[in-house]
Design a protein around this nucleic acid. Structure first.
Lengths: 247, 247
DNA sequence: CGTGCAATTGACGTGGCTCAAGTGGTGTGG
DNA sequence: CCACACCACTTGAGCCACGTCAATTGCACG
């Protein structure tokens, strides 16, 4: 409990299985060593543990090594709005740079390992390493893109389309990480999925049931198998016959 | 029509009225001169003119000098989803860095002047100028933040709350630019507002009428006056008594 | 003066929310 | 080992905010 110093000194970016999804991508050995030297690795976070809260001064960005976390904001009425689920390789905290303080909360959904990257060190290191600088920009740009696509999803698509998109994108993220894209375990509750997609728990539950009845997926609690990826994709808006309706 | 070379050589970042909202913020004179030297300024864009299209290779970021523009994406069915309205000082194109190609469309809503900032030049210049580098990160971080707040707005707030928030935020952006925050002209149509907020034209029109009937605003075509900013803010969710409901 | 788009307004339909009840799994304490 | 509490999840019934469809008006432009 009191032990808060770095553990697992044998873990380094150099031998991290997901480094090509993370900051190290494209870095040469010497740059990688420099980056590795500023990163701190701590004990795992347990379900419900909070990495940071809105208003806390920005100290570090976080890179997910293992597990799953959620980021959320609280509005003026204290209601939670989940803005992202984080998987291994994801970087957390970009939204906090502008104000130099965290703009929301990040919390572990299950036992998770994260790397802490002191922001000031990263900032000055990026001055020396052009590839690191470019990778930071790439990752931030990517987050902007993801947010815009998410915006498009929730402003104009039906509940069914949103959930199908959620499943397909989660599946794709697992594949990128070398995990099964056809069968996986949801780290988040139905309520959290609903909150993220702008739906209620009941709607999420009903739709998962519907998808199962239509043999698109198989659901067993938190475990999901995608039985008909093409059909789910087509519901998600990657339509097979998109321009059939005509003048 | 064919004249595509830089005009208005007398315009420089140094004497630009909105430079403290834009990239130059915090730059010293010598850095400012360097930045200014890589920026190109072209003829104004007219309503409907497109700056870039999804898929075009990323050449430049754009800074708005005057006017108003919209950014949008097209989904697989070809439907437009507006992701941002841009006012003077805004930077456009951050979402395109990751893939090195534009990820959506940007189009002028009215006659607009923009500064074109060749991305490769900006990238290498940012290696020499730490303040410029930090400002880019700040602006990108800010955009991520704005998108997350927008996400929160459309996933969980009612039509009335969304429109009120839209009016309040637009008002705040005008104030920042030294314009009236109480009376302004909308550059976008009702349909564009609705598209942005995830509502239909009809709903936007009805709500503007309702707000007017309640003496919160006065509407005359594209001209809007905010008569009761506090009341609109409170509808927007900046509630006067946010924690009154208790256990 | 006619054409066309933006905006308004009304009538109507419905997707997804709300409320409510019930089930199942899991951890805890007796 | 069981009893109980708690939480995640499911399922049904009813309702309402907002979308859809349609008609009308107003304004700008050629």
């Amino acid at each position: 409990m009191a032990n808060d110093k770095s553990v697992s000194n044998h873990i380094h970016c150099q031998n991290c299985g997901i480094n090509q999804l993370c900051l190290p991508y494209t870095l040469d050995d010497s740059s990688l060593t420099k980056l590795d030297s500023i990163i701190e690795r701590k004990r795992p976070y347990q379900r419900g543990d909070v990495l940071f809260r809105a208003g806390d001064p920005l100290i570090s960005l976080y890179a997910v090594r293992s597990g799953c976390l959620k980021s959320y904001m609280l509005n003026d009425s204290g209601e939670m709005q989940i803005t992202a689920f984080h998987l291994p390789g994801d970087l957390i905290g970009f939204s906090s740079i502008a104000e130099n303080s965290y703009q929301g909360y990040t919390e572990a959904l299950e036992t998770s390992m994260v790397c802490e990257i002191p922001y000031d060190n990263l900032e000055s290191l990026s001055g020396q390493l052009p590839t690191l600088r470019r990778q930071i920009l790439r990752l931030m740009s990517d987050e902007i893109n993801t947010d815009k696509r998410m915006l498009s999803l929730v402003t104009s698509r039906s509940a069914e389309e949103r959930l199908a998109t959620f499943l397909i994108e989660l599946s794709a993220r697992f594949r990128k990480r070398g995990l099964s894209s056809r069968e996986f375990r949801l780290s988040m509750t139905r309520a959290e999925i609903g909150n993220y997609l702008g739906l209620t728990v009941e709607t999420v539950s009903r739709l998962l049931g519907k998808f199962q009845k239509e043999s698109l997926i198989k659901v067993d609690g938190r475990f999901v198998s995608l039985l008909n990826v093409d059909a789910i994709s087509s519901i998600a808006g990657i339509l097979p016959i998109p321009c059939q309706q005509q003048a």
